[in-house]
Design a protein around this nucleic acid. Structure first.
Lengths: 181, 181
DNA sequence: TCCGTTATATATCAGACCGATATAGTTTGG
DNA sequence: CCAAACTATATCGGTCTGATATATAACGGA
């Protein structure tokens, strides 16, 4: 899913600036399953405007650079619909944390404990956010399904970590002692 | 986590060719939380060899191009250990499937049903693979922790999809009928 | 009140990475 | 028996990330 399509998708929900689109990938509902950086968003919006998929309304602002609010055109809606006809690529997951825990023997038990606790707190906050999401916005069946799935995954991951944290730390301590002997 | 470090990590478990390293990111235990393509692996190995992090043993093969088996050196082990000192970046997830379900209204219910069923089957197979993973190889506490976590997440996601699949499809059909009226 | 941090807002660029393609022989299965 | 899939390395166009530059406002703590 290229960044241009991602931008069209965000704009299908409401008009936005490049900066606001970025925020939706850092915080909003998209954040849980898609990423896009500003360095990709701005060129993608320029390209989309050239192709007539979006219109720009430049609002001169006092001081700040002009705010460019993008709106999806009919051609843009069609392009988004067309892009949704693809077969999905396999999911891509990159987790430094899981990598570091996989090689936990290269870490101090203290760091592992901290990283796991931080991650549990993160999963809890994400789950909470998804559960408290305004139900009005989740009237859409598809969005609601994905929201529930996200909540389920965060919850399961946090529970597993809580249940197995101490066992892992005990094993790591035992190995450290063993190595010292 | 750059591809060079990822290669060192794979080689820390056993010697391998570039092709074999790739397979570990497509199938092996790393596949669940890291990705790397051949176009990144080969240059990374060449660079690592130049830096003395790995040694190469070229095995001339009958017919096929020379097989280059890479081994981690002591300097390579140190570099891997050093790389593990970083603070982990936030996880990156990109899921075309979740995106398509989020915009389920652009899909036919039949396609949604197929995509969900395929994904459930995928999660089941992945969970099965992790659970049947040779326990000898999982004697390492860190690796075992990550293995269990992966199994838990796949299981939770599959269960959620099984439980909510029909509700979603019913809602989508209702919407389609509603739109037709 | 002053100042540092955070937020708003656009834009560019080096470097990393993916996916496709090229090459070439071997093995496997229908 | 032949097509497909596998083993194996290598390159490259195009995309994307993360950092940086630029400019200003708002907020909060000392």
């Amino acid at each position: 899913m290229d960044v241009k399509t991602l931008c069209l998708a965000v704009l299908s929900r409401r008009d936005a600036t490049g900066y606001e689109i970025r925020k939706q990938f850092a915080e909003g509902p998209f954040a849980h399953f898609q990423k896009a950086s500003l360095g990709a968003i701005y060129p993608a919006l320029t390209r989309a405007a050239r192709e007539g998929l979006v219109t720009v309304s430049e609002e001169a602002q006092d001081g700040r650079p002009d705010k460019k609010v993008y709106s999806l055109t009919e051609a843009g809606k069609t392009a988004l619909r067309r892009a949704c006809e693809i077969e999905p690529e396999p999911d891509q997951v990159r987790s430094d944390l899981f990598f570091l825990i996989f090689f936990a023997r290269y870490q101090t038990p203290e760091k592992i404990a901290r990283l796991i606790d931080e991650r549990i707190a993160f999963y809890d906050s994400q789950q909470c956010e998804l559960d408290e999401f305004n139900p009005n916005c989740a009237a859409d069946p598809g969005m609601n399904f994905v929201r529930g799935l996200g909540s389920t995954i965060y919850s399961a991951a946090a529970d597993y970590m809580r249940a197995n944290r101490d066992t892992l730390l005990a094993q790591l301590s035992a190995e450290t002692r063993h190595a010292a002997e």
